[in-house]
Design a protein around this nucleic acid. Sequence first.
DNA 1: ATACGGTATTTTGTATACAAGCTAGCCACA
DNA 2: TGTGGCTAGCTTGTATACAAAATACCGTAT
Lengths: 229, 229
Amino acid sequence: MNTSAPQPTRSTALNRSSLSQQAVEELRRRIAGNDLAPGQRLDEAALAGDLGISRTPLREALKVLSAEGLVEIRPRRGCYVAEIVPADLEEIFPIMALLEGEVAREAALRVSAADLKRLDQLHASLERHAADGDVDRYYEVNYVFHDALQGIAGNRWLQHVIGDLRKLLKLSRHRSLRLEGRLEESLGEHRALMQALHQRDGDGAERIMKGHLLAQLAALQRLMRGLSA
Amino acid sequence: MNTSAPQPTRSTALNRSSLSQQAVEELRRRIAGNDLAPGQRLDEAALAGDLGISRTPLREALKVLSAEGLVEIRPRRGCYVAEIVPADLEEIFPIMALLEGEVAREAALRVSAADLKRLDQLHASLERHAADGDVDRYYEVNYVFHDALQGIAGNRWLQHVIGDLRKLLKLSRHRSLRLEGRLEESLGEHRALMQALHQRDGDGAERIMKGHLLAQLAALQRLMRGLSA
DNA sequence: ATACGGTATTTTGTATACAAGCTAGCCACA
DNA sequence: TGTGGCTAGCTTGTATACAAAATACCGTAT
């Protein structure tokens, strides 16, 4: 899949997967990166041309993205990038709180010494990026941390469901951590979580993680109120 | 989409949706009905011929089903009906317990008098089918009941996530209610739930619903142990 | 007899051609 | 001048043709 001229021999590095699969990944990137804005209509011919593929694999990719909720296919009308409105966030975050809370509980009960060491390292990295005010890296490491926790919890379907919802949340490009004081709050919640994990306190870890997610929602709501005011 | 001869004019009643959409629905039916057995390989050309459509819309349908987890597409190797093993059930049911528990909690807090009337009717229907030993209709009404509760709870994304997981559970053609005494147990749990709903007891409804789902899992496990022994 | 390799066939993945529906713009008429 | 319907084009949905990879089959050699 080229992003410039029509490919002469399709030589791009490693062509391991199918074009439709590559299209899914590229479109996910473009949607997450806001190159394709929420609500925007996707013209199949134009997009296929842009990706350097034909409409057939592109349409298969759009079906997948539609199933993920990233685009909405209106039959005979076209395909549109999904929009996540505040009302959606208010519904999704409580679900995430439940699910991630369960992850935290299970992780606290199953965590090994080696796991704790790795989590401590990630947490230290979070502290460092926070101190530097490097919000982007904080987000990155934060993601890795939550992912690691899911791995420890060990429920693959739970991981799957959380992953689906997280993809959706990426649609709303809100960076609540840029809110005054939220970064410190978040860090504090992470510290408390680490403590609960060290103590293998399942109830505590669940409670803290739920609170962490709901605090994120509250911060987002403050942010959105601020923008609309 | 015909299931017999090649269609002459494609005149079947109302052809509102696209062939790929119809194929999704038909394949879902066939998978749920075990016409397509778990693990079975799906030959695109043969299946397309059987559905009376070409491979293009069929492949789009398979992409959708793959995203739902009903089939697994192995690149360049073919498409297979997904298999749900006991280990999967042990992961999925606890998630369902969480989610449906939340539904029960929210529903208990928001339920209106009219809602309660309708739920009472559904519950009465459950009691009747149980008394008749009509397990199939019990399952049907039970589904409608849970669906109604989700409507009352009002979280559309929660509904969506639960729906996704339920589709998966259909893959394992579990009929735990056929287990000795499980039908009566289930009925008892439903009675307790109705009481909690009438009392608008969110905590109680959540606890009962969680227990209901986990009891289903336990029954399934007894059933599976029985089969393998 | 068995294992390895090469060829033929089958099957997936992609492109293109074709059909049908939707949109928009224009003209006629009130 | 505004409204209604018709036509032209543009876009989606489907079928088919083609390319490439995987599988199966067969023959040969050890």
